[in-house]
Design a protein around this nucleic acid. Sequence first.
DNA 1: TTTATAGTTTATAACGATTCTAAAGTGAAA
DNA 2: TTTCACTTTAGAATCGTTATAAACTATAAA
Lengths: 135, 135
Amino acid sequence: MKKIDIFKKLRTSGLRPTKQRVEIAKFLFDRDKTFHFTVESLNKLLEKKTTSKFALATIYNTVHAFKDAGHLSEVEVRGKKTYFDTNVSNHHHFYDSETSELIDINANEVVIQKIPKAPNGKKIKNIEVFINLKN
Amino acid sequence: MKKIDIFKKLRTSGLRPTKQRVEIAKFLFDRDKTFHFTVESLNKLLEKKTTSKFALATIYNTVHAFKDAGHLSEVEVRGKKTYFDTNVSNHHHFYDSETSELIDINANEVVIQKIPKAPNGKKIKNIEVFINLKN
DNA sequence: TTTATAGTTTATAACGATTCTAAAGTGAAA
DNA sequence: TTTCACTTTAGAATCGTTATAAACTATAAA
C-alpha cells in the first residue's frame, strides 16, 4: 500500500492526517495479510513499533472513524473486548478460544446450501459463519 | 414443565432451591418457546412478574450456574451485554439489530455444504451461523 | 425441634473496557 | 502569520460485570 492510500483512508474517513492518525493508518493498512486486533493490542503494538505516543482515546476515535467509513470491520466475538479486522470483505472466521486468536476464512471457502427465510418484513443483511476451535 | 423439573434444574446446577432461585428457574424454564435475555432484561421482567426482589448479583450467579450446568447457552452477539438462550441445543440465530432481538434458527434449517479444514493441530468445536437482519 | 454450619442474598465496592470532557495543542485556509 | 475549527491528551465518568463481606437461611445432625 502506497503512502497516498493512507491519506485516502484518512480523507475518506473524515480525518485530518495528523501524526498519530498517519501512524495508526500505516500500521493497520500497510500490510499484506489481514490483521485482527483489539484497541488494547493495537496500542501495545504501536508503542513497540513507533516512537510516538498515543492516548487510548485517540486510538478509539481513529479506529471507530475507520470502521464507520468501512475501512475496518468489527468481528462478532463473545467476550469483553471488541475485535476489529482489516478485512472488510464478506468473509468468515475461525476462533481459537485457547489463544483468543481469530483466523479469516474466505467467503468462497464456505458454501451454505440452505438458509431459512428472513422473518416477516425483514431482509438478510449478511451471514456470518463462526467456527469455534478446540485442541 | 412441571415443578419437579425446576428443582431438578437447580439440583443439577449445584444450587439449593432458595426463593429467588426457584423464581428465576420458573421464569426461565416454565415456558414453551425459546427465551433470549440479558441479565438486565431478565431483572426487569422478574421485577414485573414476581413480588420478590432480586439483587443483580443473585441473578448473575444463578444464570451463570445454569449456564455452567448446560441449562442455558450464551449467544455470540456483538455488543456490551451478554445474551443468554434457554435453547441449549445446537442451533443458529437471526439477529435484528434494529430491535436487538435474537430469533432461533433450528439446526436443520441451515445446511452447510463446504467448510474449510481446521488449522494445524486444531479441531472444530462447533459452527455458529449468525444471520444479521435489516428492514 | 434446636443447633450448627455451609451455602446464599444483598448492597456496595471494585474492575475492565469504553466513552466523555475540557484544556492544551495543531493543521490548514485565508 | 494568524485564526479557528479540529485534535490530542489525561483523567473522570460510565456501563456491564465480578468480588466482597456482613447478614441471612436451608439443611441435617443432635
